[in-house]
Simulated assay, not measured.
Amino acid sequence: MAYPDKLLADDEEVVRHLHPHWLTVFWPLVAFLALVGLGSFGAALIPEGSNQGVFRLVVLVVVLVLAVPLVAVPLLRWRTTHYIITTHRILHRVGILSRTGRDIGLSRITDVSYTQTLWDRIINSGTLTIETAGDGGSTVWTAIPDSDGVQQLLNHMVEEDADRRAQESAGYIGQYYRGDTGPFEPGR
């Protein structure tokens, strides 16, 4: 079973599964290219001799040590950050070795807003702020691709969830007052 699907209830479906905007991995990729170039250049500068292999190995180790925090960690952080919108809730999961997560039922969402800087508008990204009922406070999702579209989608999903709950409640109350548990039949 794929990652977000194993988190879902039986009647729940993924509407949108997002990672942070792809430009969040731009500088790690530039760092990777720079490290490869500098490492190759440094290895080529080492003069021939009996220790040439050792010095080239040192250059390789330095490049690898620098690649971990500058390239590998940001790429893994991007890949392991999930923003998931389902038919019943929103989920946020983040973490490489240790994970944290937050689930918010659509019925608890009171407001969804987004902000975009000029640069965010150019690259079609932004920050979502999700207000909820209760003590949880605001949830802020940063570097969201198509943030205005996601904000509209969330507002639509909240309305659909409210309508679904109202219909379920009305059906249950109608069955309760009629004294039966079968489907509602008009005129009965």
Rank of each mutant, 00 (worst) to 15 (best):
Y176H: 07
L29Y: 04
T139R: 06
G53F: 14
D111L: 09
T142Y: 11
E131K: 10
V68S: 08
K6E: 15
I90R: 04
K6Y: 14
S98P: 11
R79E: 15
I46M: 03
L7E: 13
A133V: 05
L29K: 07
V73S: 14
S147W: 01
L106T: 00
T181K: 12
G134P: 02
G95C: 12
F41D: 04
A31K: 04
M1C: 10
Y172R: 10
P69V: 08
L18A: 04
D11A: 09
P145I: 01
Q175S: 04
T181V: 11
G42Q: 03
G137M: 01
G187H: 08
G134Y: 02
D135S: 12
L60I: 13
A44V: 06
P4C: 04
Y3I: 14
A9C: 13
V71S: 03
V68K: 12
H156P: 04
S40G: 15
E48A: 13
L35T: 02
A67S: 12
S125I: 00
L97H: 14
S113V: 06
R108L: 07
V158Q: 00
S113N: 06
L38I: 09
S113Y: 00
L70D: 09
V30T: 08
T181F: 11
I130E: 00
I96H: 14
F26P: 06
I90T: 08
L38M: 07
Y172F: 09
Y177M: 12
Q52D: 11
L18Q: 03
L60F: 13
G182S: 06
D103Q: 13
S107G: 11
A162K: 09
Y177A: 13
